[in-house]
């Protein structure tokens, strides 16, 4: 139980570090995937601890959310690449209202 939650926390922190440190937007999206996955792992561990199916149900919802988020995010990356010819986030640092 504790080990599982610890693993989820470590994976989440790796993903968070990835979002904060990387400047490549594809890597930022990958790190967000890692973080979502760690959250799902925490749900599964807690569900297994109590022997209830709720944890797995929540994992399925996280999976749904991740799929929707990734499709929109990748479309945004393609749009950004067409506009700036680069996927570096520093290029897209100005707003245009």
């Amino acid at each position: 139980m504790e080990q599982g939650l610890l693993l989820a926390a470590v994976l989440f922190c790796i993903g968070l570090g990835g979002v904060l440190l990387r400047r490549d937007i594809i890597f930022m999206l990958l790190s967000i995937e890692v973080m979502l996955n760690a959250a799902g792992l925490a749900f599964i561990v807690a569900g297994a601890k109590w022997g209830q199916a709720d944890g797995q149900v929540m994992f399925i919802f996280i999976l749904t959310m991740a799929a929707a988020e990734v499709s929109v995010g990748l479309a945004l990356i393609i749009q950004m690449f067409m506009k700036f010819k680069s996927i570096d986030t520093d290029v897209a640092s100005t707003m245009n209202g």
Binding site: F61, T64, M65, A67, A68, E69, S71, V72, L74, A75, L76, I78, Q79, M82
Partner: peptide, 19 residues
């Protein structure tokens, strides 16, 4: 609600991704 989210994800990705 998950079904709503997925359909809006599909439509959003199609709309954002077009040239």
């Amino acid at each position: 609600l998950g079904a709503f989210l997925l359909i809006s994800g599909i439509i959003g990705a199609y709309h954002i991704g077009q040239k």
